[in-house]
Design a protein around this nucleic acid. Structure first.
Length: 576
DNA sequence: TTAGGGTTAG
């Protein structure tokens, strides 16, 4: 009767309460041989196995009257499949201590756990056991070994084990294929792919992804077209390849061709539009997405934050919060939200977020900390930013750049320069954002020569200055009264200068009462931004400063006549 | 027993 009851749970929901009841009955009736069966059934049931359930199973395993390798094996296998690798491996070690002979299930599952936790020693000792126990013929264990060495990055051993396998299946071939792909050896991967006696959709997706990563989309497409069977991942790999290459139209063409899409498809496309700054298209897709998960929200919030629409980002974050249980913000969401707050100069939000993080036990990661460094810097709290920076587990180009910029805008040029030196010493390659911060520091400190030198050194780091960098340089030279040099610098630009560049020259001309360059700079500003009247005012001021009252009046009446809209000052503190 | 595609900071 009891046996029947235990068996009836096969593939049924088995709650911990029911299991405990049955277990109690087993103990009362002294039918201890049913205990392993209970463990087995427990592992097979579709119940959500929480930590307390597993503790319970562990207890049964340890109190079995007779140690039972089968029960241990299926528990280890279950844990490994569920991604609880540490737990799986420690059970494997425990069963050894009990003197149990591990099944091939237990061995391959423990190997899987070692592969995913980088448990090199554990995996290698299981390899030794494979020989000792004479299970060299088991294709599952051997394949798990190939996978283990592949994940460890030990290609030679992976290949040796693979070559020595008396019997191989498609999984074994896929494992060695992914080994070469992970190592970036596409040539060898291709050779393996061509040699495979049988290919499944995993083999095809793997090679497809290998080619997509090289950026050779013609080749990738040719593989895609030859696939006998395609899964979502096949389509998504292709689309993501086009997105990475910046070929958003091609990505969209295949997106539209799909009859069915999963969330990854939608999010890949939204992220693609984010990268190319097409917020409108991203938003359209987000609205059309049938079942938005929290990753979709993350993608869209980041899209707004990355494309200078911080208010929209916060609005969507607010909507996300209102959705309640199913969709919860995580660290990724918060990193974007902090970035949005930073753009708004809104420190209060920042503090709110910090308390939210603490309240919900969200793990602070380096992304979030870097966003906070930026936020506190922009709000003038450099000390706090510095504290966060010093506490980072790993400092990279993004965090250094944030901190350098933080020092720069808060008048700490020396600190910014020191940080840059530290970064170079740590062999971290500076990029565009790093130089923006550093040049800003030189600019604030009025260090013209040093700034100039820094600007010229950009090419040594393989960084091509953008319009923003030129704008800072023009500002630096202009403030020092070196207007002609500033103008020559603009003329030498390979990209079209934006109003930031010409505006910097125009403002410098106002300070130094220079009509000649002022007129040139103003003319460009008028053309680039016909709706902004500030430039007319500046030129009018220049005329007035040299006593050319008629011209000054002409400028102002020009302004009136065109009924130009007065654009408010573009200070981020005013936007809140 | 195998992989694979998605969101994050300056």
């Amino acid at each position: 009767m009891l046996l029947h009851r235990v068996k009836s749970f096969l593939n049924n929901q088995l709650t911990i309460k029911q299991a405990k009841q049955i277990h109690a009955q087993i103990l009362i009736t002294k039918l201890n041989h049913l205990q392993p069966l209970l463990v087995h059934q427990f592992m097979l049931s579709k119940t959500n196995h929480s930590a307390s359930v597993l503790m319970y199973v562990r207890k049964i395993l340890h109190h079995l009257q007779k140690p039972d390798a089968f029960s241990w094996g299926c528990t280890i296998r279950f844990l490994s499949q569920r991604g609880q690798f540490q737990e799986a491996f420690s059970l494997y070690v425990e069963m050894q201590k009990l003197g149990l002979y591990p099944s091939t299930h237990a061995m391959s599952s423990a190997l899987r756990a070692c592969a995913r936790t980088e448990g090199k020693t554990g995996g290698v000792s299981i390899h030794a056991q494979v020989h000792r126990y004479g299970v060299c013929n088991c294709v599952f264990v051997q394949t798990a070994l190939v996978d283990f060495y592949s994940k460890l990055g030990d290609i030679d051993t992976a290949k040796r084990v693979f070559d020595e396998m008396p019997e191989k299946n498609v999984v074994s071939w896929n494992s060695i294929l992914s080994c070469y792909l992970k190592a970036g050896n596409l040539g060898e991967a291709r050779r393996v792919f061509d040699e495979m006696p049988k290919k499944d959709v995993i083999s095809w997706n793997s090679i497809l992804s290998g080619y997509a990563k090289t950026g050779n989309m013609d080749q990738t497409l040719s593989f895609f077209q030859r696939m006998p069977e395609r899964s979502f991942a096949s389509w998504n790999t292709l689309i993501s390849g086009y997105v990475e290459r910046g070929e958003i139209e091609s990505a969209r063409r295949f997106f539209d061709m799909m009859h069915q899409r999963n969330n990854i498809t939608w999010i890949t496309m939204i992220a693609g539009y984010t990268k190319c700054g097409d917020v409108k298209s991203a938003c359209e897709l987000f609205d059309k997405m049938p079942e938005k998960d929290h990753l979709a929200f993350n993608a869209m919030i980041s899209c707004y934050a990355q494309n200078s629409q911080p208010k929209e980002a916060l609005k969507l974050f607010d909507e996300m919060l209102k959705l309640g249980t199913n969709i919860r913000p995580d660290g990724v969401t918060l990193a974007s939200v902090i970035s949005a707050c930073s753009q708004l100069g809104e420190l209060r939000f920042g503090s709110w977020i910090e308390s939210y993080i603490n309240k919900h036990g969200i793990q602070m990661d380096d992304h979030m900390v870097t966003a906070l460094i930026d936020l506190y810097s922009k709000c003038g709290n450099v000390d706090k930013a510095f504290n966060l920076f010093n506490g980072l587990s790993k400092k990279d180009v993004v965090s250094y750049s944030a901190m350098i910029a933080g020092c720069a805008i808060n008048g700490k040029a020396d600190d910014a320069i020191k940080l840059f030196q530290k970064m170079v010493d740590a062999q971290i390659q500076p990029n565009l954002a790093t130089f923006t911060g550093l040049l800003t520091a030189y600019n604030h400190a009025g260090m013209v020569e040093e700034g100039h030198q820094c600007f010229n050194s950009m090419k040594d780091s393989g960084v091509v200055p953008s319009s923003d960098h030129y704008a800072i340089m023009v500002d630096l030279l202009g403030r020092a009264g070196r207007l002609e040099e500033a103008y020559e610098l603009i003329k030498s630009m390979h990209v079209k200068p934006h109003t930031g560049v010409w505006g910097a020259l125009l403002r410098a001309c106002t300070v130094h009462k220079n009509v000649e360059f002022g007129e040139i700079a103003a003319q460009h500003c008028f053309e680039l931004e016909p709706g902004t009247d500030g430039y007319y005012s500046l030129l009018a001021n220049i005329y007035a400063s040299v006593g050319r009252w008629d011209d000054s009046r002409r400028m102002r009446s020009n302004m009136e006549r065109k009924k130009l809209a007065r654009i408010p000052g573009c200070s981020w503190t005013e936007l809140t």
